[in-house]
Amino acid sequence: MNPFDPKHWDPCNEALERVHEFLNQRELTPQDQADIRRHLTDCPPCGDRFDFEEKLLERLKKSDPCQCPERLRARIKALLDLT
């Protein structure tokens, strides 16, 4: 990491801005992931925020268990079988 690169002047900001990319395990290079993981162990306030955000996101996903109505399922099956 280049300490003169303005991007790295504030490692907390840098980590917090990428919280969702990190939590979703998407879009980050392995190096970025490792950098963030290291920062989270070094910096408990950031660690707590990530932890909170992770739980919030999981909770949000679980809040939406959706079952497609049977009526719609029948409608789609009819559409796919007719042709």
């Binding site: 959706c66 497609c68 719609l72």
Partner: peptide, 27 residues
């Protein structure tokens, strides 16, 4: 189907419109 309906429901916020969006999408 379940997840597409779920997404349509969150987009439309209306169960019967969500069904129509999903049916139309499959068509």
């Amino acid at each position: 189907l379940d997840e597409l309906y779920g997404a349509a429901l969150r987009m439309t916020r209306n169960p019967s419109m969500a069904e129509d969006v999903v049916a139309e999408s499959f068509a």
